[in-house]
Amino acid sequence: MDLELTGKSVLVTAASKGLGKASALQFVKEGANVTIASRSIEQLQQAQAEILAATGKQVQIVEMDVRNFQQIQAAVRTAAVDNKLDVLVTNAGGPKGGTFQQMDDADWQAAFELNLLSVIRMIREAIPYMRQAGGGRIVNLTSTSIKQPIDGLILSSIFRAGVQSLTKSLASELASDHILINTVAPGRIATDRIFELDQLKADKQQTTLDAIQAAALQHIPLGRMGEPEEFAKIVVFYGSFANSYVTGQSVLVDGGMVKAL
């Protein structure tokens, strides 16, 4: 299938590692002109080198903290080619873990800025460049908590759900501009973030990481964690121009883990 991405300008945020980097790599493989953004210039340079080694193609890098509005503006401008941006993939690290009673106002504000306000700002900045391009694709990376809250991750569950509500709302508002917007939510994908959360859970329960992961796999019909590349392929399809009629939707890449309809 031709995903119609050759020569398209793509911005992927939080892309120096994990799911962001995997998604950027897949866009490069499809012939897109990709810009990756992250807080760490050193990690960006490492990701740039790894993508070059894997594809023979160079990606553009830009230092950007998703909580910094000026840096968001600069990243979008940098990614736009001839003032045109075709694809935006919004992504950010997860917020602090814990229960409702453990969170204070500062925790809620920090999570709002990291996981919801950042997405609002990135999309708002990208829209004029997509209109200039005659249309575009937006893919928001969230979590399976948009369908089923995750115990101990209340901040993520609340604000990721907000992103999905934003996606639904914007699907109608942006349709006349030929901009399609969707959400792709990872389940248990083998990334540093998952291992970090599993280790925290193991420490809390005074057990081993292996025990926590074995228990988690019992809830996944496919019986294993997903690989970043598997997730990235779904992101790239929804962010492609082969996707011409799906907007406002959420797809879970979770091996069947979430049972919600």
Rank of each mutant, 00 (worst) to 15 (best):
Asp107Phe: 00
Gly134Asn: 12
Asn243Phe: 08
Leu114Lys: 04
Leu222Asp: 08
Thr183Phe: 03
Val34Pro: 05
Gln132Ser: 15
Gln109Trp: 09
Gly136Val: 12
Thr208Ile: 11
Leu11Gln: 01
His219Thr: 14
Thr90Cys: 14
Leu52Phe: 15
Ala216Val: 08
Asn243Cys: 02
Thr90Trp: 05
Lys168Thr: 11
Gln218Met: 03
Gly136Leu: 09
Ala161Lys: 09
Pro186Trp: 01
Gly97Pro: 01
Leu200Trp: 00
Ala92Thr: 11
Gln101Glu: 15
Arg121Glu: 11
Gln46Asp: 15
Ala190Glu: 15
Ser23Val: 08
Ala110His: 06
Arg188Met: 13
Leu88Phe: 07
Phe159Ala: 01
Gly136Glu: 05
Gly93Ala: 10
Gly152Lys: 00
Gly98Lys: 00
Val235Trp: 06
Gln70Ile: 11
Asn115Gln: 11
Ala133Asp: 02
Lys57Thr: 07
Leu222Gly: 02
Asp177Glu: 14
Leu180Ile: 08
Thr55Val: 06
Ala202Trp: 09
Ala37Asp: 10
Asn115Pro: 04
Ile154Glu: 00
Ser23Leu: 08
Ser244Cys: 11
Thr90Gln: 06
Lys96Ser: 04
Ala211Val: 12
Gln43Tyr: 10
Tyr129Ala: 08
Ala214Asp: 15
Gln101Gly: 15
Phe100Cys: 00
Gly135His: 08
Ala53Cys: 07
Gly135Glu: 06
His219Ala: 09
Val184Asn: 02
Ala242Trp: 05
Leu5Asn: 04
Gln109Ile: 10
Leu217Phe: 03
Asn83Tyr: 13
Gly239Ala: 08
Thr99Ile: 04
Leu166His: 07
Arg121Ser: 11
Ala37Pro: 07
Gly223Cys: 02
Ser40Lys: 09
Val66Asp: 11
Asn115Trp: 05
Ala133Tyr: 09
Leu114Arg: 03
Phe231Ala: 06
Ala47Gly: 12
Val246Phe: 13
Ser9Asp: 05
Asp2His: 03
Thr167Asn: 13
Lys57Met: 08
Ala211Asn: 11
Thr6Gln: 15
Val236Cys: 04
Ile36Asp: 00
Gln45Phe: 02
Ser145Asn: 05
Thr55Asn: 11
Ser157Pro: 06
Gly255Met: 07
Leu252Lys: 00
Met64Leu: 15
Val139Lys: 01
Lys84Tyr: 10
Ser157Tyr: 01
Met1Thr: 12
Val184Met: 02
Gly136Met: 06
Thr167Gln: 03
Gly135Ile: 07
